[in-house]
């Protein structure tokens, strides 16, 4: 027997539509005439009829529960949709604001840095003045100060090498440093030589004698050195507080705003995604 699927598609469609009473009168007449003479067509019709009967005889499926909506379900549909909408737009606006602030920051970055650095100077000066009075208490702070000093100004970084070169160089370097200190600290630098010469020896003991340490020992001992070269120490200390006092000012308010906006945009985007997922 021919399987019904091997019948021409138009015959299958006509038989199927005939079963459902969906054929036009003319098509129906033609099909009825063919069914009288074509046994395969008549058998296929009977098979399709049985298939349809079997489908209609399928038992109903038991409902697991009712699908009526509670007032809560009905009530939360719109607010949730609105909430997701608000989150999504809030995220978009926060992102736009972040972009605007970032552009402003980039455009005015140099200007801002200059503004931030300028007011830091007086603060550095204020912290530098007491720095002249107390003596360094140990080798580590001084070593750290030395490192800072080495990185701050070329004039100061030349000091250690100058001390190694000879006493003339030491005198010149110390003089230059003194000049720099006088320039930056004004009247407060005046007693420095006396103070420094008094404080020189205590500051000199170093656990491991370095080139710089040796130079300081030489200076502190005052052997053959009449010039007040010891104030080389205070400027080194004065540069360290300057750097420390400027560092916090580098976190500009714009950066804080940018970070805040980025966090806000991210949080709102996540909230919008969650709201959408819950709605599904």
């Amino acid at each position: 027997m021919k399987p019904s699927t091997s019948l021409p598609a138009h015959d299958l469609e006509r038989l199927s539509a005939f079963l459902d009473g969906q054929l036009s009168d003319s098509d129906r007449t033609v099909l009825l005439a063919r069914l009288q003479h074509e046994a395969a067509l008549a058998r296929a019709l009977e098979e399709l009829r049985r298939v349809r009967g079997a489908l209609r005889a399928l038992p109903p499926i038991r409902l697991p529960r009712n699908f009526t909506l509670t007032a809560e379900m009905a009530g939360r549909t719109r607010p949730r949709a609105a909430r997701g909408f608000v989150f999504a737009w809030g995220s978009a606006l926060a992102t736009l604001a972040l972009a605007a602030v970032a552009v402003t920051d980039l455009a005015g970055g140099g200007l801002m840095a200059a503004r931030v650095a300028a007011p830091a100077m007086p603060a550095a000066e204020l912290q530098m003045a007491p720095g002249l009075v107390p003596a360094p208490t140990g080798p580590e702070p001084r070593a750290a100060a030395d490192n800072q000093a080495d990185q701050t100004t070329p004039g100061e970084s030349a000091a250690p090498s100058g001390t190694l070169a000879g006493s003339d160089s030491i005198t010149e370097t110390a003089g230059a440093l003194l000049f720099a200190q006088e320039k930056s600290s004004g009247a407060t630098a005046t007693p420095a030589p006396a103070e420094a010469s008094r404080l020189g020896p205590p500051s000199s003991p170093m656990p491991t004698p370095t080139a710089e340490g040796e130079a300081l020992l030489t200076l502190g001992g005052g052997a053959g050195s009449s010039t007040p070269t010891l104030p080389a120490e205070p400027p080194r200390e004065s540069t360290a507080p300057t750097a420390v006092s400027v560092a916090p000012a580098l976190i500009s308010p714009l950066r804080l705003i940018e970070a805040g906006l980025a966090v806000l945009a991210l949080a709102l985007a996540v909230a919008a995604l969650l709201a959408r997922r819950v709605r599904r």
Partner: peptide
């Protein structure tokens, strides 16, 4: 709809056969 239904019934017929 007509063609899909006819094809579906024919496929079911073959499967059940």
């Amino acid at each position: 709809v007509k063609s899909r239904l006819a094809r579906a019934r024919a496929n079911l017929r073959d499967c059940l056969a």
